[in-house]
Lab assay of single mutants.
Amino acid sequence: LKKVVALYDYMPMNANDLQLRKGDEYFILEESNLPWWRARDKNGQEGYIPSNYVTEAE
């Protein structure tokens, strides 16, 4: 899975979204639905995130 790091905080707009915290790492599960990607956080929560809020992890 592709790993990304959040560049900004993101508060979910609806139940399908995943909250982002700046500096945290996330795994990308699906990239087909631009600009929204399906992601999983370190706690196993899954949801959609804005792809322009993250960058690929080193």
Rank of each mutant, 00 (worst) to 15 (best):
D17W: 15
K2G: 04
N52A: 15
G23W: 04
P50I: 05
Y10G: 01
L29E: 03
G47I: 02
A57V: 15
S32I: 08
A39S: 03
D41S: 07
A15N: 11
L20M: 08
D24G: 07
G23N: 05
S51Y: 14
D17H: 15
Y53W: 07
L1C: 09
K2R: 13
S32N: 12
E30F: 09
N33E: 14
E46F: 04
W37V: 15
Y53F: 12
I28F: 02
R21W: 13
K22Y: 05
P50M: 09
V54A: 02
R40N: 03
Y48G: 03
S32E: 08
L34K: 13
K42V: 11
Y8C: 12
M11G: 06
G47A: 01
P12V: 04
K22R: 11
M11V: 13
R21E: 07
M11F: 15
G44D: 05
T55I: 14
E58T: 14
K22T: 08
P12S: 06
I49Q: 00
A39F: 02
I28V: 10
G44T: 02
E56I: 12
S32F: 09
W37E: 04
V54G: 00
D24K: 05
L7C: 07
S51C: 10
E58K: 11
V5N: 04
T55S: 10
N14I: 05
Y53P: 00
M11D: 11
P35C: 15
L20D: 01
L20A: 01
G47D: 01
A39K: 00
P50D: 06
W36N: 07
Y26T: 01
K22I: 07
R21P: 00
N16D: 13
S51G: 07
L29N: 02
D17G: 15
T55Y: 10
L20S: 00
N33H: 12
I28A: 02
P12G: 06
P50G: 03
Y8P: 00
V5F: 10
M13H: 11
A6T: 00
N52K: 11
G44W: 05
E46T: 08
D41L: 01
N43H: 13
F27E: 10
M13C: 11
W36M: 15
F27K: 04
E25M: 14
L29R: 03
A57I: 15
I28N: 00
L18D: 00
I28L: 10
Y48I: 07
D9Y: 03
S32Y: 08
G23S: 03
E56D: 13
Q19M: 12
L1M: 11
Y26L: 07
V4N: 01
M11P: 07
R21V: 15
W37Y: 13
A15D: 13
P35L: 15
Y48L: 11
N14P: 02
G23H: 04
